[in-house]
Amino acid sequence: MATGGRRGAAAAPLLVAVAALLLGAAGHLYPGEVCPGMDIRNNLTRLHELENCSVIEGHLQILLMFKTRPEDFRDLSFPKLIMITDYLLLFRVYGLESLKDLFPNLTVIRGSRLFFNYALVIFEMVHLKELGLYNLMNITRGSVRIEKNNELCYLATIDWSRILDSVEDNYIVLNKDDNEECGDICPGTAKGKTNCPATVINGQFVERCWTHSHCQKVCPTICKSHGCTAEGLCCHSECLGNCSQPDDPTKCVACRNFYLDGRCVETCPPPYYHFQDWRCVNFSFCQDLHHKCKNSRRQGCHQYVIHNNKCIPECPSGYTMNSSNLLCTPCLGPCPKVCHLLEGEKTIDSVTSAQELRGCTVINGSLIINIRGGNNLAAELEANLGLIEEISGYLKIRRSYALVSLSFFRKLRLIRGETLEIGNYSFYALDNQNLRQLWDWSKHNLTITQGKLFFHYNPKLCLSEIHKMEEVSGTKGRQERNDIALKTNGDQASCENELLKFSYIRTSFDKI
């Protein structure tokens, strides 16, 4: 039985969820670079991206490699990797027998973001014989899940209580170790020597080791999670996991709180800001991140802002960003909400898709409305799209047979046209069989910064309504002859009103 693990408890099935942008060198404390989270699957090609990484700022997932063999891993080693800020997950990587050479110096898994409450997941690794993470000293947050690894031993010899604050939620089941077939031998045991430290858990006094050649490092209890030197002297209180010299914040392997210019500090002093819960960055760093993602459509890219001495992905609820200094300031009234469309555009074809934009005031991208039916549609669209004030790209209304009016965009005031449909149009209306009105132009103002209007096959939309939009939106004169079809717009509506004058002759039985 794995020490510190839980057996036999019912657990939810383990679901495996399925960018080499360097964020800056980590400095003297770390020998390499800070790398983003990685999802490495199918083959070993991307694994080489770990070569210079000291910190993975995010998670590391290595999974679904069915053609790899043990010899493929023999020359692979990433000794610079010290810390993973989120979680480490391995799933069905064939041929991998140990992690001792792959990650010989991995010391800390912070667990800032977890995989279903777990910071370390080893699942269905069919050839893994031992973990071998002999320098792993601290899992700051989260638990361990090690399950269905039929060859995995050296679990009962690990004292997880020396690595985690609590072992109650560890789930370590259905491994070879369960069948008591392992016969784990710690260093020196074969020669009758006791080389590794022994600890007591559940009444068992057991030597602690990761492999037959690597003991588990056990520091004096007084050192807590700070770690200790090879001689057993406690590291500085700002260290986490390990250090090369005692009581020196510049000799830590990793930091308990924050890293700044080669030393570990309790908090980031001005003019620095907390970033990702582990390091200090200056304003320029946060500003660069903001600008890199301002026009990016890459998933996970955030326009970072500053709030409460932190550089964070977005302002919290009730705050909006001051564009001059990136500071989050309290909103006066309802907060603006910028919604970034991942692929640059979004099609609204149902109430469900409209709900995804609920509360958005600025759309960074283009909207395509293609709704053919739905219950209580006008009210639903207004509830979900009615706060949109600005669209950076274009607005396209296409084959939306259920629409009679666009009044559900009740606050839309600006279409920038930074991206144009077919390279020309910022407003595009095609084949809307029941569209009769755009907006009530006596109450609604709309500016279209650039781009043209396109109207074709809107049989109940009168040309007068379209011409009014040209005047109000500032697009009059931009359109070419064929942009607004004269014969297919309003051709099934009563669009022309003329005053009919009647004269009559009164007659009676005795007068003409």
Rank of each mutant, 00 (worst) to 15 (best):
I82M: 10
S112V: 13
I122R: 00
T189F: 13
K217T: 15
N195C: 13
K310H: 04
C219Q: 01
N43I: 05
S213R: 14
I163H: 01
C280Q: 01
N202M: 07
T140M: 06
C335Y: 06
W210K: 01
Q276R: 11
K67L: 09
C186P: 01
Y30M: 03
R256W: 04
F73V: 06
P330N: 07
L155K: 01
L131Q: 02
R298P: 07
P334N: 09
M137L: 09
T140L: 08
Q245H: 09
S324E: 14
V253S: 08
L260P: 01
K191D: 15
N135E: 05
P246L: 07
W160D: 00
L164E: 02
E147G: 03
D261W: 13
K67W: 10
C153P: 00
L63A: 10
C255I: 00
V218Y: 06
G232L: 03
C293G: 13
E49R: 09
N42H: 03
N175Y: 03
Y273P: 03
I158Q: 02
E51C: 13
S237W: 09
F103K: 01
T229R: 08
V34F: 09
Q303T: 03
V305C: 15
H48D: 15
H290A: 03
G300I: 10
D169K: 14
E168Y: 15
I139M: 08
I84G: 00
R110Q: 13
F78V: 04
N309T: 11
W278R: 03
E180D: 05
L102W: 10
K148D: 02
G318R: 05
K251R: 14
W210Q: 02
P36F: 14
E130I: 09
P246G: 11
C286S: 02
L174P: 03
P197F: 06
V305H: 06
D159H: 05
V108T: 12
G241M: 03
D277G: 10
C235N: 01
P330D: 11
Q287K: 06
T194F: 11
Y304M: 09
I40L: 13
R162T: 06
P336F: 04
D178A: 13
V200W: 02
C239M: 00
L99P: 01
C328R: 00
S284R: 05
E181T: 02
L50M: 11
T320N: 14
L327E: 12
P70R: 13
N257P: 00
E314Q: 04
S324M: 05
E238H: 10
E151K: 04
R279F: 01
D178G: 05
T189S: 08
D72T: 14
L289I: 15
E57Q: 14
G183A: 11
E57I: 03
D165A: 04
Q299E: 04
Q299H: 11
L120Q: 00
G95T: 02
K193F: 14
L133M: 04
W278T: 14
G203V: 10
M125D: 03
K310C: 06
I201C: 04
K217Y: 02
G32P: 02
I122N: 01
K191F: 11
K129L: 08
F66P: 03
D277R: 08
G32A: 15
V305Q: 05
K80N: 07
C234K: 01
C328A: 00
R208E: 12
D178I: 10
V281W: 01
K310V: 04
C223R: 00
K193V: 09
V218C: 10
N138H: 14
V144R: 00
Y134N: 03
V167D: 05
F103P: 00
V144A: 06
H59L: 02
F91H: 01
L50T: 05
P334H: 09
P269N: 02
S237Y: 12
C234I: 02
L60K: 00
L114S: 03
L63G: 05
H59W: 07
D72S: 07
N170F: 06
T107S: 09
T45L: 13
C255Q: 00
V200G: 12
P31M: 11
F258Y: 12
L128H: 01
H212A: 10
M125L: 03
N117F: 07
A198Y: 05
F115P: 01
G333Y: 08
Y118A: 02
G142F: 00
N43K: 09
C335M: 02
L174H: 06
V121H: 04
N117T: 03
F91S: 02
E33P: 12
M38N: 09
S112M: 06
L332N: 05
A190P: 08
P313N: 04
H302M: 10
C280F: 01
C186I: 01
N105Q: 09
N295W: 15
K224W: 03
L60W: 00
P220M: 03
L44Y: 08
A190S: 09
C215L: 03
F205G: 02
K80G: 14
C280D: 00
H226T: 10
K129I: 05
D247A: 13
H48M: 09
F103N: 00
K148R: 14
L332F: 01
P246I: 04
H226V: 06
H28F: 10
Y304T: 14
I109V: 09
S54A: 05
I146P: 00
L47M: 06
N150R: 08
Y171V: 04
V108Y: 03
D165Q: 08
T45S: 05
C53Y: 02
L29R: 03
W278L: 11
G300Y: 08
T211H: 04
L114W: 02
P197Y: 07
R162H: 10
N242T: 12
T267R: 08
V173G: 05
C186F: 00
T157R: 10
P197M: 12
Y134A: 10
P316D: 04
T85G: 06
D288I: 03
V281I: 05
V55M: 05
S166I: 12
V144I: 06
V265N: 04
H48R: 12
P334L: 12
I146L: 13
V305K: 10
G262V: 03
P220C: 07
S112R: 13
I201Y: 11
C315K: 00
D288N: 11
N149V: 02
C53K: 00
S112F: 13
E314K: 07
V34K: 08
P79T: 09
E71P: 12
Q204H: 07
I185W: 14
F258E: 03
F258K: 15
L155T: 07
N309K: 11
G95Q: 14
F115G: 00
I185F: 13
E57D: 04
I139Q: 00
C239K: 01
P31Y: 15
T229Y: 10
R256Q: 09
S296T: 14
G318F: 11
S323V: 03
I185V: 10
I109P: 00
D169N: 07
D39P: 00
H48T: 06
R145L: 04
A198W: 06
C328P: 00
G300R: 09
S317G: 04
L233Y: 15
C153L: 01
L233P: 04
N202F: 10
N308L: 12
Q303F: 12
H28S: 09
E97L: 09
A230W: 11
W210M: 02
N117W: 14
K176W: 03
K217C: 06
Q303V: 10
H214V: 13
K224V: 12
M137S: 11
D261F: 06
F283M: 09
D169P: 12
N117Y: 08
L240I: 07
L174R: 11
K310G: 03
K224Q: 11
V144T: 05
H28Q: 06
L120H: 00
D261A: 10
V121G: 02
Q276S: 11
T45I: 07
H212R: 10
A230S: 09
T189G: 14
G333F: 08
F283L: 09
S317R: 15
R256L: 12
K191P: 07
S237L: 06
